[in-house]
Design a protein around this nucleic acid. Structure first.
Lengths: 209, 209, 209, 209
DNA sequence: AATGAATGAGTTTTCATTCAT
DNA sequence: GATGAATGAAAACTCATTCAT
């Protein structure tokens, strides 16, 4: 008689539930780190009970790695400019440098980075792999674009073109500061970034005559 | 691993014990992070019983913060070059860039960084302050040296001299890789660093004629 | 001692469990005092695991104070005699004196008293408040009854009627003996109580002529 | 050379040390109860280190029982009135009732009582024996005095003279209140005590004609 | 005698995981 | 699927007692 009355509360489609849990897990893991996070925290952040979480994941570890995968896969890939486009320093800044600053400006992303770094030390470095899976294509694309810029005569060969990773490393100064908990004013960041771009311009711009 | 277990024991002067404990604590915290570290681990790594540790520190939290302070204060400060010395790119590389790579090459330092990050997320960023206490003087000294190099006519004004922090940021690429758990061959690091130095040379060396 | 260990188990409704725990807690606290009581003792006396106890209470302190409240609230209030009833010394003995002896005859009550005393010394006297909440109405009712007895011409004004608390104080001699661990034969107690009643009769009975 | 320089600090005669320790122990036990008291507390209250205490006592238990013995033996015995003295209610109040109120008014005595009561439950009731050793002679003396008063024609036979313990029981109301942590104004106590004495006067005074 | 570092057993509390409902 | 009670294995912290100095 009263068989399904209390049972069917909040029965959501599995995929929705899983996403809710992963979202909740991200925030909690980000705030507390892996060990300090309790399943209860994740559950209640997802509007669920502990047991409910275990209906979708079989362990804390699995929640964690699923969450990292989900988050990283979420990120939109860099779009390569058209073959015809003229590659200038400005274009590189917009396409490759700006997204990096945007990532580091995002509190959630910083937290995710922190977690990945710390958990890279624990367990067998799975989460870091995910990150490599994202950054490698980034560097490869950047290399292609820079090379094309040189062919087009817009850019000049330099340490930056030989080792394109260097192009974005100044942004890591910002990242580092964020990771370590430093407070920086928006103005300071903007100034720093302006110098970064000035540097790229100095070094990469082809001498036109 | 446990090579001091049977060695020196019993009734050490407190200062010695405290240092032993802090050293042990560093390694254990570095390996496991704050939450996963058990006092027992620290104790046995210090060749002591759990209770013995509590004779010198009153909580895990206190051990942790003492350890961070101790570690950071431990680090030797950068030595400023003589007034008379000619400031060249090479000298800057040796005095300012090389130590940064050395720090990031050190597994212990990477672990300490990781710890500082998590704790920045946990408590209200205390350990990060310590870090700022170290890096600020570094940047100030670097600024002075670069300015002097320009006065001497050895260096050229550029984004690097206006924002000297940029000079070392490429090393953060290496740090990032290390933090994220990436394995890099010594050769790859050397190559990366060579490009870093090449960049500095390109941008900073004054045009002599 | 452990006769419910294998009996009812698993998944009891919380209210039932809570009562079981409070009952168990009472006996253990009563026997050992607050500090010497281990949660394990309470748990196994309640036929539960340590962790199970923490599902219902968040600390030893909370178990303790809940238990005291529960115990004191448990006690049945004194029932006032009918308006019409003739108030005699005998009636007072039955209604007010006998229950006091009954309380002090109960080992559990003596233990509860002991606990309340220590805790009065420890924290800031909370459990004692509970006790006052019980004894105040008792005295007030006694006062009303005695006054009525005098109006009715059955009782005589005296120190006992002006300060009705005195009426029961001889029972405290018994209580004191019990608290202090003295062993007294049932006969001795009966004799003592008879003298107590004799005294009340001597002093309170109205001179009829 | 510097052999006895730091050694001989505060070397006191043993009896003095022992008394200092027992005094300290009393206050600490009184405040915290047996289990919650730490040897360290006693030691530092006695101006000594833990090890120092163990030079005079071999265990916490021994300190406790020595302390109780010492305290109880300290108390001055009741002095019997001269054979020739007229025994009146006033004299009984002064000689037997007043000291009881004095004891219960003393915070230290209340604490000692509490300890004895609680510890009577723990271990094999040793401390309570000490108390009996004190109260028995008290009652015996009171009996003799009352009997003498009746012979002298000053006092009247009554429940009080048959069971002299009853004479002081009203004071236990005050004691009970104190034990249980109740706060009572000096005025309230005085009033209560006046009623107590009034009662004694009513019941014990011989009808003179 | 005095000190206080060291020990280790004992206690509270936490939490991932299981499972009856 | 969802719930939350139950479990049990940790882990932080305490403290009587010992003992080198």
């Amino acid at each position: 008689m009263s068989d399904k009355t209390t049972a069917e509360r909040h029965r959501l489609p599995p995929q929705v539930r899983v996403q809710q849990i992963l979202d909740a897990a991200f925030h909690v893991f980000a705030e507390k780190g892996f060990v300090a996070t309790r399943i209860d925290d994740i559950a209640s952040a997802a509007g669920l009970s502990k047991g409910g979480v275990y209906n979708h994941f079989s362990s804390k570890e699995e929640i964690f790695s699923s969450m990292v995968r989900y988050r990283v896969e979420q990120r939109p890939p860099i779009e390569m400019p058209d073959e015809a486009t003229q590659i200038t320093v400005d274009l590189i800044c917009e396409t490759f440098v700006a997204p990096v600053y945007a990532v580091f400006a995002d509190d959630d992303e910083i937290r995710l980075l922190r977690i990945i770094m710390v958990e890279a030390a624990r367990s067998s470095a799975h989460p870091a792999d995910r990150l490599g899976a994202y950054s490698q294509p980034f560097v490869e694309k950047l290399q292609q674009v820079v090379d094309r810029g040189i062919e087009q005569g817009n850019l000049k060969a330099s340490a930056f073109s030989r080792s394109v990773g260097l192009i974005v490393t100044p942004a890591l100064g910002y990242m580092f500061n964020r990771l370590v908990g430093g407070e920086t004013s928006a103005a300071a960041v903007a100034a720093y970034r302006a110098e970064h771009i000035a540097l790229l311009r100095e070094v990469l711009t082809a001498d036109k005559e």
